[in-house]
Amino acid sequence: MTTVTVGALLRTWRERRGFSQLELAGRADSSSRHISFVETGRSRPSEEMVLRLADRLDVPVRDRNALLLAAGYAPRYAHTPLDDPSMTVLREGLERLLTGYEPYPALVVDAAYNVVAANRGIMMLMDGMPEHLLAGPLNAMRLTLHPEGLAPRIRNLREWRGHLLAQMERQIALARSEPLRALYEEVAAYPLPPASEQPGDSEPDEAVPYIALPLRIEHDGHLLSFVSSISTFNTPMDVTVAELAIETLLPADPATVKYLRSLAP
Rank of each mutant, 00 (worst) to 15 (best):
W160M: 08
L150A: 06
G72K: 07
P191V: 04
S196M: 14
L94T: 04
A175K: 06
L90K: 01
P194L: 05
A106L: 06
L125G: 01
E92L: 07
L183A: 11
A117Q: 08
P152S: 04
R153C: 05
L157E: 07
V116R: 02
P103G: 08
A182V: 12
G149V: 09
T80S: 04
L192E: 08
Y73Q: 10
M129S: 00
S202E: 15
M124H: 14
I122Q: 02
G149S: 07
E102K: 02
H146F: 11
E178C: 01
L143C: 08
S177V: 13
E148C: 06
R155L: 12
D84S: 09
N139I: 02
L165M: 11
P137V: 08
A195H: 07
V115F: 05
H79V: 02
R161D: 02
R161K: 04
A111H: 05
R176L: 09
R120V: 08
L107M: 14
M129P: 00
L138A: 12
L157D: 02
A74P: 15
P130M: 06
E186F: 04
A117D: 13
L82N: 10
D201K: 05
N139Q: 10
G93I: 03
M168Q: 10
A189H: 05
R181Y: 15
L90V: 09
P194F: 13
S196R: 14
Y184T: 02
P194T: 04
A182K: 13
G121S: 11
L145V: 14
N114R: 03
M168G: 05
A188H: 11
E197L: 12
R96W: 00
D201M: 03
R142K: 15
T99I: 10
G136W: 11
L94Q: 01
Y113D: 08
P152I: 05
L82F: 13
L97A: 11
L97Y: 00
P199C: 06
